[in-house]
Design a protein around this nucleic acid. Structure first.
Length: 466
RNA sequence: UCCGGAGUAGCUCAGCCGGUAGAGCAAGCGGCUGUUAACCGCUGGGUCGGGGGUUCGAGUCCCUCCUCCGGAGCCA
């Protein structure tokens, strides 16, 4: 006799006729007056539940089994048998059903045996992993994370754990959360009356990181191919289905790569991880296609099978202007592309993923490499049908003089970036990288509509309860 | 933050021109059945988001605040 995951039992690791034990939580119970109860048990190991058939001869049939409901935890032992029912290949003919934990008030148990809206489930984030949907999201999230590490590992990248606390301000990536141990009610003051952050824990103002890029560049200048994969924080008051205050980001950085190589990497990488989801989580993807988004499998298959279009920003603007489409925000050279423009480009104009390259320098960050035309930088965005921007990246400015000039123009303090500037002083090389929002990637693969449902405990303005 | 929509039973919602609260699901009990979104019957379950106002009377009309959802901006 062995204790197996439900996934393993359904996969045939316990042959028909053998005895096995499974452990998990009850989804549903149905009784037959022929003297048996059908108990569906899940343990998260796969999308499917297993059907445990409990006969009335069990000593605790009346006392326990007839009282089982959704959420109760059980340990079930019995013989694996071929199921007469159509819905499952095998089931467990129970010789023992031990109730480990009851649900103390079934009527008010938030995860009752019925469909719940995702909005409601967010209010019970501690119990929602028990649902089909959140379970499937969790397994796909894991699969993508594993595929990301595997891709980079197989391609000679090293995972660099960049810091979560940073003193680098003004990276231009958005508002930051302050990290401080000062008494917020009564902080120490300087002679001038300002808060004296010299007395703070780090001896200076510090924040939660908005990007690991600047730090990871230092390792890129020694280990050549590196990436970060960790949490990132933005204190923006964003209330949308695509933004979180705490999210996970993947940022590869490659020495000697130019913008074209950067785009090639983004394309190869994205296709690899989406292929992994299709291959490794077919049951979960089928669930998403059935219940969440009919198109999700075909969309991912198409994404994996199509060549990404490359287009200069200048050309993209010209084609948007010529499109005859009425946009809420008019297009002209020099503006940043709006969501509606990006969607038009990738969904209508091209019908495939598009890499838009070489943006006007005035709308992009100081570290992006300046092109010879004097007005654009070697930036790129990967736009995907159905979601818009999925990746933002660039070739970095490796020439100290040009970097300094740009920092001056943007009124950034050179001193504060002394170590970043050092990389350009000591053996500088061209290099490039990009950032991929992990949760947005999950949204794309699963068809889930709201980013708050693809991260276990979403942090958004006003929300950090769980 | 701006624009729009919505807060009524555990959940999802209906509730007309103001007259004192409804359904489905869930839950409990019973019936039936190798069941599987089970089915049939019965029962319990409500500070109608909070506060204020108009009115003989407010779930319904007005003001205000709060919360949630969608879209936009910021971005990943």
């Amino acid at each position: 006799m062995s204790t197996l995951s439900i996934r393993d039992v359904l996969a045939g690791k316990a042959p028909v006729g053998s005895s096995t034990t499974i452990r998990g939580w009850v989804r549903t119970r149905r009784d037959s007056k022929a003297g048996i109860s059908f108990i569906h048990v899940h343990d998260g190991s796969s999308f499917h539940t297993i059907q445990v058939v409990a006969p009335k001869e069990l000593p605790n049939y009346e006392a326990d089994i007839l009282k089982l409901g959704a959420g109760c935890s059980v340990i079930c032992t019995g013989e694996v048998v071929a199921s007469p029912g159509r819905e499952q290949p095998v089931e467990i003919k129970a010789t023992a059903v031990q109730v480990v934990g009851w649900v103390d008030d079934p009527e008010s148990y938030p995860m009752a045996k019925k469909a719940h809206t995702l909005e409601y489930l967010r209010e019970v984030a501690h119990l929602r992993p028990r649902t089909n949907t959140i379970g499937a999201v969790t397994r796909v999230r894991h699969c993508l994370a594993q595929a990301i590490h595997r891709y980079f590992h197989e391609h000679g990248f090293f995972w660099v754990h960049t810091p979560i606390i940073t003193a680098s301000d003004a990276e231009g990536a958005g508002a930051m959360f302050r990290v401080s141990t000062l008494d917020a009610m009564n902080p120490p003051r300087t002679a001038g009356g300002k808060v004296d952050f010299a007395q703070d824990f780090f001896g200076r103002e510090s924040y939660l990181t908005v990007s690991g890029q600047l730090n990871v560049e230092t390792y890129c200048m020694a280990l050549s191919r590196v990436y970060t994969f960790g949490p990132t924080f933005r204190a923006e008051n964003s209330n949308t289905s695509r933004h979180l205050a705490e999210f996970w980001m993947i940022e590869p950085e490659v020495a000697f790569n130019d913008l074209a190589a950067n785009a090639d990497l983004a394309e190869d990488f994205l296709k690899y991880i989406f292929r992994a989801v299709l291959n490794e989580q077919p049951d979960d993807m089928k669930f998403f296609a059935d219940r969440v988004d009919k198109e999700c499998i075909s969309r991912v298959e198409k994404f994996v099978g199509s060549r990404f279009e490359r287009m200069d920003y200048t050309e993209a603007v010209a084609r948007l202007e010529r499109s005859g489409e009425k946009f809420e925000f008019p297009v002209s050279w020099g503006i940043d592309l709006q969501s509606e423009h990006e969607r038009y480009l990738t969904e209508k104009l091209v019908g495939r993923p598009v890499v838009v390259m070489n943006y006007p320098r005035d709308i992009k960050a100081f570290y992006m490499r300046q092109n010879d035309d004097g007005r654009t930088v070697a930036a790129m965005d990967v736009l995907a049908p159905g979601i818009g921007e999925i990746i933002g990246g660039s070739q970095r400015e490796e020439r100290l003089e040009l970097l300094d000039r740009r920092m001056d123009e943007m009124k950034l303090n050179r001193e504060a970036y002394w170590w970043y500037r050092d990389l350009r002083r000591y053996g500088t090389v061209p290099h490039a990288g990009f950032g991929l929002g992990f949760e947005r990637t999950i949204i794309y693969a699963t068809g889930m509509a709201n980013i708050r449902d693809v991260i276990p405990f979403p942090r958004t303005p006003g929300h950090a309860e769980f």
